[in-house]
Design a protein around this nucleic acid. Structure first.
Lengths: 191, 191, 191, 191
DNA sequence: GATGAATGAGCTTTCATTCAT
DNA sequence: AATGAATGAAAGCTCATTCAT
């Protein structure tokens, strides 16, 4: 049966979902193929190895965040508060469903695959940088850095906890806290 | 030839180290056996399966934290500030070397093994509860809960980031921030 | 879009080169297709299977030797010595670059494909017969047979050794030896 | 079922037989395991990979020739003629049954595995050196080298032909020729 | 004729687990 | 208790082949 059954985009989305849900090692090529309606051998038309596929998935997720989340920091039409709200609302929506690919894979492959690690590091650097840009509107350089780091780490911790407890309250609570803190800080900035 | 070559405690410590360093899936029974000076088959005299071993390791790490970290909250001889400092100093010391077993395994096995998940949930509940007890000395019930949650999540996020970046600065920074925040809050409590 | 991109002759020459260079099993249909500027599937318009292609390649190489090497024995304008020189000069030139298809495939597929084996047997029979014809000019029937066999086997052994050592000296030396022996025998024939 | 079913030596002998009979690529790990009465996974107790196994097989065959064939050249109790006879009688006996591992693998893996190639080169160097030692008893250095090279190449060519034709006559004939040549040369040496 | 997505059988390899010694 | 040979299921991957376009 020739006729294209799937697109690369579709494979990446299915892979992303499975890697998030089950982690890298618990997801087999056969699992992904099945989710795509293919046999495992067929996946190798699109990706030369499981690692290469994973790498593309990481890039895909990164690109998604770049376009849909990180870009918000540069939206001139929004107030700083609105930026924060949208950034983490989007993140929450994206991460809540299946967990955070970057964190999972980052931890699972930290000592294994250099390219994974570098891509994931870049992702988090950009995320912190994004939040720092918004904080810079209400805080000085140094404070903005620490506040951004704090905010992203807390949010990441919350995503992890939501995963472990299968309870979205951790991310919800974290969202409320960080938005309130931002509002409070805005009223009494140290800029 | 009978004669016990190793103690269960020794196996658990070796396993804990390896699971932290390499994650659950990247650590084989042979790896653990080798680290213990045993051969694969011999491990099965101590634990009926890799999962059962992992479960004991989780309990072991939990017990360690209970005794060495969580207990600090009940030490009557310490001020609240001292408690916070010691709790996270101890945690930092314990987690920095190899990463956080609970988070790794929690994420890696979230949808796989119910018993792991429950034990890990209990661990984090107790950790948050521990920190809440300290915050209760300077904040009301509801604030203490949120502040404890925030603090533990940020610290967990920092441990993860330190792992991914192989850079202890994330945990160091998080420690400094949370201690300073606690001090600042102490001066101006809303209790 | 019809329009033939390549000729059967071209495919056979590319296949011959690859099978010689990399052996039958180390050459994939995709390799051959790529060398021809085609894609895998397209090769099946020309040949029903890899084995059938190989068979045609064997025939192609056989035909080449028939026309360019074996024919020399019947060239009335040459002396016996000149015939020997030309036969093995041509063989050397043809085999040195990539090794001897017949020997490779003959050995690799000896118990696998009857048709290959038969074609390759015929090839070597004709080669030995060719050399025998030349030896018959200076030796009796029985000696000519043995001398021809000896000469071809030594030359084949030399080709193999040149392949294994990646050093053309073995074929060069063999050529010198067999030409000198022929000259010496000519001076003192036992016909 | 623990209890050792096979020895490493047994695996090597079975592997040697199969690689000779069917070539490297036509022999699967499952084939070898089956020949040993094992399942394929079990072979990995003894050898870390198919390539490593092959390498041991090459060494095994080399050691066999060293001990049983090459050593003959140094047997002080034999005449040169007797040495030649025994060397090639032994070789014939060893190679006739299944073909020549070194030649098969050498050709199949010539551009693939450096260690194979080097080991096989050493084997042939030693073989030629062995024959050269015997020729040195009746010829000068330079002649001995060429005569040894010629003799081994012819014999190797004969082994290959015997394989392709499934007819031992090529090796038989080569043996007769080379023994007779040696005898003739002994009577009229140019030393 | 050419394409290339898809197949499916088969490969090498890994690894938790068992059990006779 | 310790061994380590053996298992067997499952993994990642390759590749000759098919076929709708």
């Amino acid at each position: 049966m020739p006729k294209q059954k799937v697109s690369i985009d579709f494979i990446l989305r299915q892979s992303l979902r499975l890697f998030r849900e089950k982690s890298y090692h618990n997801t087999s090529i056969a699992d992904i193929a099945e989710a795509c309606g293919l046999l495992k051998g067929s996946l190798y038309h699109y990706f030369p190895s499981k690692e290469a596929l994973m790498n593309e998935v990481v890039k895909y997720a990164h690109a998604y965040f770049k376009k849909n989340v990180f870009s918000i920091a540069h939206n001139q039409e929004l107030t700083a508060q609105e930026k924060m709200e949208q950034i983490f609302k989007k993140s929450e929506k994206s991460l809540l469903s299946h967990g955070d690919l970057m964190a999972n894979v980052g931890v699972e492959t930290a000592n294994k695959n250099k390219e994974f690690t570098e891509n994931i590091q870049t992702f988090f650097e950009e995320w912190i940088e994004t939040v720092k840009i918004v904080f810079s509107e209400i805080a000085n350089e140094e404070d903005a850095q620490q506040l951004a780091e704090q905010t992203v780490l807390e949010f990441e911790g919350a995503v992890m906890m939501t995963r472990i407890f299968k309870d979205p309250k951790f991310v919800h609570n974290a969202y409320e806290r960080l938005i309130n803190r931002f509002a409070a800080f805005s009223l009494n900035p140290n800029k």
